[in-house]
Simulated assay, not measured.
Amino acid sequence: MFDEARWAEVPTVVDNLLKLSSLAPGGRILDICCGVGRHSVELASRGYRVTGIDLTRAYLDAAKETAGAVLGDGAAAFPEFLREDARRFVRPGSYNLCINLFTSFGYFATREEDILLLKNSAKNLLPGGCLVIETVSKETAARDFISDEEFERAGWQVRTEYEVVGDWEGELNRWILRKGSILIDRSFVLRLYSGFEMKNALKEAGFASVDIYGGLDGRPYDDKADSLVAVARI
């Protein structure tokens, strides 16, 4: 559920991503939890060879529709969209860059499953490749915590409610969406990592070096950080 502002920011997000990762033109990219394909389609439009994986069929259908509208159905750079589980998807040595953006990490039931996603990412990378993760962290979640908020997005009236899980191990999110007679009520837990914990998790998964930033623009990870961005290289 993305409004026009979220779509409009994609070119800048991709500009920053490419600069941060130092990816050469024409490289191969795996978009993990690609959702509706915002970043996959933009990257493909710039000549990168993109595979997007997600478990939600409706997201993948929307991604294919967007790619067709933007790129044309016969485009040579049309992304490959697959319904796959990131805990199981392995194509050893196939990609120059793996990405997991917009807080799409930390929703599995256990930390071990998170580590499995990271290990698979390391396996999927070519020598010299890197993984870029962008997510909410313990530090940013605690600093910006609110118990609830209400807003409108893409024609939906939205109410969100938040609770701290354990000793800041995670955050319980409840989203209540209304549009006319339609009501959607969903709850989920986001496992939170500090910058230090994320770096250790990536090294545990086999990455040789990890740099932590406070945004995709490469700003420092300090008290003014927008998010936690990890750039991990094999």
Rank of each mutant, 00 (worst) to 15 (best):
D3S: 00
E4G: 02
E4P: 01
E4F: 10
P11M: 02
P11H: 02
T12S: 13
T12H: 05
D15E: 08
N16T: 11
L17H: 07
L17S: 14
K19S: 14
S22L: 14
L23N: 07
A24C: 12
P25V: 15
R28H: 14
C33M: 13
C34Y: 13
G35Y: 04
H39L: 07
S40C: 07
S40T: 05
L43Q: 11
G47T: 15
Y48F: 15
Y48D: 03
I53V: 12
I53G: 01
I53E: 07
D54W: 04
L55E: 03
T56M: 11
R57T: 09
Y59F: 15
D61L: 09
A63E: 07
K64I: 10
E65Q: 10
A67T: 08
A67N: 06
A67Y: 06
V70A: 08
A75L: 09
F78C: 06
F78A: 15
L82E: 11
L82C: 11
S94W: 06
N96F: 04
C98W: 06
C98N: 07
I99H: 01
N100F: 07
F102D: 11
F105E: 08
F108Y: 02
F108G: 00
F108Q: 01
T110M: 03
T110Q: 08
R111F: 14
E112N: 10
E113K: 09
I115V: 15
I115H: 06
K119N: 07
K119M: 13
N124F: 06
N124M: 03
L125W: 05
L126A: 10
L126D: 00
G129K: 00
V132M: 06
S137V: 12
K138D: 10
A141L: 08
A141K: 02
A142Y: 10
R143W: 05
E150R: 12
E152L: 12
R153C: 13
R153N: 12
A154V: 02
W156M: 03
R159E: 12
E161Q: 15
V165G: 04
D167F: 08
W168S: 09
E169Q: 15
G170M: 00
E171G: 03
E171H: 11
E171S: 05
I182C: 07
I182L: 14
V189E: 08
L192R: 02
E197R: 10
E204T: 13
G206I: 11
G206K: 14
F207T: 08
S209D: 14
V210W: 01
D211S: 01
G214C: 00
G214F: 00
G215H: 01
R219I: 09
Y221R: 00
D223A: 11
D223K: 04
D226R: 00
V231P: 01
